[in-house]
Design a protein around this nucleic acid. Sequence first.
DNA 1: CCATAAAATGAATCACCATTCAGTCGCTTT
DNA 2: AAAGCGACTGAATGGTGATTCATTTTATGG
Lengths: 208, 208
Amino acid sequence: MVIHFMANAANTDKKTNDKRSRILMGALKAFAKKGFYNTRISEIAVEAGVADGTIYLYFKNKDDLLISLFEDRMEWLNQRMQKELKDVHSPKARIRKLIELHCMLAIDDPDLAEFITVELRQSSKFVKEYENPKFHDYLRILEGVLLDGQPEVFQEHLNVRLIARAIFGALDEVLLILTLGAMERQEIETFINHVTAFVLGGISRTQD
Amino acid sequence: MVIHFMANAANTDKKTNDKRSRILMGALKAFAKKGFYNTRISEIAVEAGVADGTIYLYFKNKDDLLISLFEDRMEWLNQRMQKELKDVHSPKARIRKLIELHCMLAIDDPDLAEFITVELRQSSKFVKEYENPKFHDYLRILEGVLLDGQPEVFQEHLNVRLIARAIFGALDEVLLILTLGAMERQEIETFINHVTAFVLGGISRTQD
DNA sequence: CCATAAAATGAATCACCATTCAGTCGCTTT
DNA sequence: AAAGCGACTGAATGGTGATTCATTTTATGG
């Protein structure tokens, strides 16, 4: 009896998650292409291969779908960020890694890159009540890297919170360019080098 | 006859411009508060003190209103930028001036600040056919300042186009913070100093 | 002061689309 | 095998809001 229940639940969960994540994928693709407000629920449904109504079994409404998509993807992004930063110890190298990862979104998942660069502000401003905690987690990771390096290599008077925002803004804008023009991997690497030099120059104690 | 016509035209133009600019003001206020897609034409009409239909005498449709608003305000911003930069000659001082002006929007015209930070990307991406030339003019001003200073004080290998974007992104993000929390003028000045130090550090040949 | 044109109005239209829900499907249990 | 149950479907609903246009108001000129 118990075993049955468990198996059942696991199965249901699997199917549930599968469908839910297909809907999220469809929404991401559609939002990236046409933006939140220009995307019809029916388009997401087609993209996900489900009926319109099915979406409402997994999400309260269109706003909730947007928010859930943010939560899901930013969570993933933050975890990846933290995992990759774990192995890097020099503060400057961590900054470089962070910039690399941020920019590599343009290649790894262009839809996600586009979604973040274009919808992030809108959503945290106009989807009522939504504070976008996962985005703030991202900022906190960046702040953490700055704080860790501050006593040694970064300027002691940095306003960490402010500069983290400025760096995020710079990266976001660069990511936006990357998603627009299709670029060679090589060219992207050059971009990353330039941006890294710019950011490190802005925060380091001494010029390299 | 000619004189009559002229006077007539001038008069009409004046009234026309007056009403047109009242509509633009109303749209700016409404867009800043609720965003483009959540703003009803009727709300703009109320804000401007005109009838709904009147808006369509001056603008083709809602998209056109958005675009016209961009053109109008960015044009104004660019002109102000260029005028103020005219008197400043040292490259570093010009960068500082540019950052100051950008940030001062949060105080001088919070609605405009909010509008630019939140609607700029959306619009250039989803309002079909619109290339947002005035925004690119802004970028070109920034690039110009970098280029002017490059032979002397800024790093010779700067990718000017890229770094201009990065700087814009950083400023935009900072402006976004400024518009959210109401701040003292003093605190804003501190912010400006930090951001200026960050940017100059990122582009200068030698640490100051 | 009248005639004509121009500008402005705002109620009515109508296309659109998020959301709902009555009905179907397929699987499990007995 | 049939009843029960949860997941799923997609056509129908209802609210919404951009846009239109018949009508009214205001300005112009003789």
